[in-house]
Design a binder for these strands. Sequence first.
DNA 1: CCGACTTTGTGCATCGGTTCACAAAGGGAT
DNA 2: ATCCCTTTGTGAACCGATGCACAAAGTCGG
Lengths: 225, 225
Amino acid sequence: MKSASQPRDRGIPEATVARLPLYLRALHGMAERGVATVSSEDLAVAAGVNSAKLRKDLSHLGSYGTRGVGYEVEYLVYQISRELGLTQDWAVAIVGVGNLGRALANYGGFVSRGFRVAALVDADPEVVGDTIAGLNVEHIDELEAVIKRRGVSIVVLATPAAAAQKVCDRVIAVGVTSILNFAPVVLSVPESVDVRKVDLSIELQILAFHEQRKAGGPLMAVDGQ
Amino acid sequence: MKSASQPRDRGIPEATVARLPLYLRALHGMAERGVATVSSEDLAVAAGVNSAKLRKDLSHLGSYGTRGVGYEVEYLVYQISRELGLTQDWAVAIVGVGNLGRALANYGGFVSRGFRVAALVDADPEVVGDTIAGLNVEHIDELEAVIKRRGVSIVVLATPAAAAQKVCDRVIAVGVTSILNFAPVVLSVPESVDVRKVDLSIELQILAFHEQRKAGGPLMAVDGQ
DNA sequence: CCGACTTTGTGCATCGGTTCACAAAGGGAT
DNA sequence: ATCCCTTTGTGAACCGATGCACAAAGTCGG
């Protein structure tokens, strides 16, 4: 590579960004198994995508492959990690320590690469003060203070639906611009804030739709038996 | 296509299907608040989308609005529910009763409309036999039997990554064709099987990417204070 | 050093989805 | 009954993403 000094286009397609973590995971697996280089074809299979798409995705980060050979696994891991911002570590706060919040706090893959659960916050006096996954649960009144003190830049909302918007507003007010929302509500946020939503019931409903189609066929009995 | 007798085109765009649950949720809220009719503009705002998109989405189900007035809330709820297959009830099995599986089993919104957690399955003898969310946890050896006995048609995978593919193969072998996968692996399944993936760490990585761009700008300080 | 072979990177056609903008359709007032 | 006002439903332009197919670029054996 010659002038590879500034490969980042500053304009990576959203669809590509969403797939990079997938490639990264596949590459990590390969690195662990001692694979040194990989072709776009093999990596594509491992990531469950088509190889042309994979090559185009990677081409957005720069020209990191060698024609006739493939990609060097370690190097590609580094480049993708870097592009995704995983070379620094991100402090994450989880707000809402119900069943889901607890599960997230204990979730291994969460904490693994680049991310660190730095704070747990809840409103219920019953759980405030408890230690979960080695962390003290702090009171929601302390929300702003905790976020600043721990340098939190990503907030995970695992609160009940009714509380989500309020918490959201508060964390935005102290400068948080990235939110992962598990509460089943549409959050209203300024343009500059990034919200990603994970909604279990929506996923189920989409599955049900397709399942119904498959089961039903041309004419289905809607009859209860 | 003239004969509008069969408004369902049998070809609803995937993007539309993914938004219908959103509209449905907004409509349920309105119905509870006693709203009788709603314009595409208002519903769009409530669902967080653009009104033209909403109208086009709804037009795929049929012509259920009244020009100059809007949509009748109750009626629209029914039509969307019907289209999504929520008028019947779906038996869901959760495989893997770790932190996440437990959270899912207890998740209210899960069980609410159309879905019913019908079985919990795990491999750990420690938890088999426990009662969680009113359900007995059954042993993974019973997987096939349980699925058949309870009429499960949707399986939620909340197992460790290493176990997911095996469980997946087994449930497919007994006829399951809809899977919601929380394990961080790419499942390999036949064409006919529908897999949706929820991956917490991928969502975080996407957020980190954007956060980095925002924070970083041209040259960023990675300094921890 | 050359020629055959492999695999990348990408131009181009295509496709699905989004958005605009407006004619058609209905309600309500006069 | 007629006209005006509101809001739907959709044709058409646009935009981003996908996938094909191939030239360019590199490796490796002889």
